[in-house]
């Protein structure tokens, strides 16, 4: 009966994102927040494993206190309990630092067999959290898992690669990051939503995890996010005059000048 940890994150719903036409910056105010899509797959996979093999699945999230509806959603789907890691000091943490916060919380939660993460988040899409966390906890890691089977204390996983499928196995404890293809996340029924209210939600701050506030947030993060802006695509409106041969020659010249060819 595996003891599982599922890391998930709250992101803005990208379908509602708008771009400020003057600054090209993303306008995120007032946008619905949701659990990152791939993390929903990780939650679903943990629940499926639990349904087949028993065990317990704990969701862990670094976020603002306002992310409680997302926690409730994860619990409604079937996680047994959740752990919210929330501290003003965490603001501005990069992926490496979030991995450090998660690692501290997972150590505090006690022994585990598996950690499941989404392959990447639907906002930053760095796909670095799983690998960083595995390194922090000194675990074997299976990334891009598109199918997972448990056999005793072994995990057999199919990895979706660009040029094929790789089948790998690892012993507990192990970290897996899962792809979107691994499953279809379930929707909770009303009964499950009501039952989720009774499930345990732990809330820990930096001090509870033994983390110095200097080691987290902006101060503790080697990567500083300067600006997020939408890519601007504009037509150059160059009109190629002359004969076909002349126009083709000029097109080649322009493309060479732009560094395209």
């Amino acid at each position: 009966m595996p003891e599982m940890i599922v890391c998930f994150k709250e992101v803005v719903d990208e379908r509602e994102l708008k771009v400020n036409p003057k600054t090209q910056e993303l306008m995120t105010e007032g946008i619905t927040r949701k659990i990152s899509d791939f993390d929903l797959n990780a939650i679903e996979e943990a629940i499926r494993i639990k349904e087949m093999h028993g065990g317990r699945a704990t969701g862990v999230i670094v976020g603002l206190p306002e992310c409680k509806p997302s926690i409730k959603k994860a619990l409604s789907m079937g996680l047994d309990r959740a752990c919210l890691l929330s501290d003003p000091a965490f603001a501005g943490s990069d992926t490496l630092t979030v991995a450090a916060i998660l690692a501290a919380a997972i150590r505090k939660l006690g022994p585990f067999d598996m950690i499941l993460c989404g392959e990447a988040s639907t906002d930053g899409f760095s796909a670095q959290l799983g690998p960083s966390l595995a390194e922090r906890l000194d675990l074997p890691q299976i990334t891009a898992a598109s199918q997972v089977t448990i056999e005793g204390n072994q995990v057999v996983a199919e990895r979706s690669l660009d040029d094929g499928i790789e089948v790998v196995e690892a012993s507990f404890p192990v970290l897996l990051s899962v792809t979107k293809e691994i499953n279809k996340p379930r929707l909770a029924t009303l009964k499950q939503i009501l039952a989720a209210s009774k499930k345990e939600v732990l809330e820990w701050k930096a001090a509870d995890l033994g983390l110095s506030t200097d080691a987290v947030g902006l101060q503790g993060s080697p990567i500083v996010l300067k600006r997020v802006a939408a890519f601007r695509m504009e037509r150059k409106n160059i009109r190629l005059e002359g004969t076909l041969a002349e126009a083709a020659e000029r097109a080649i010249r322009e493309l060479l000048r732009e560094g395209v060819l």
Binding site: K72, S76, L187, L194
Partner: peptide
């Protein structure tokens, strides 16, 4: 809160 989550689902 439960009704809002139910509506979302």
């Amino acid at each position: 809160e439960d009704q809002e989550l139910f509506r979302q689902m």
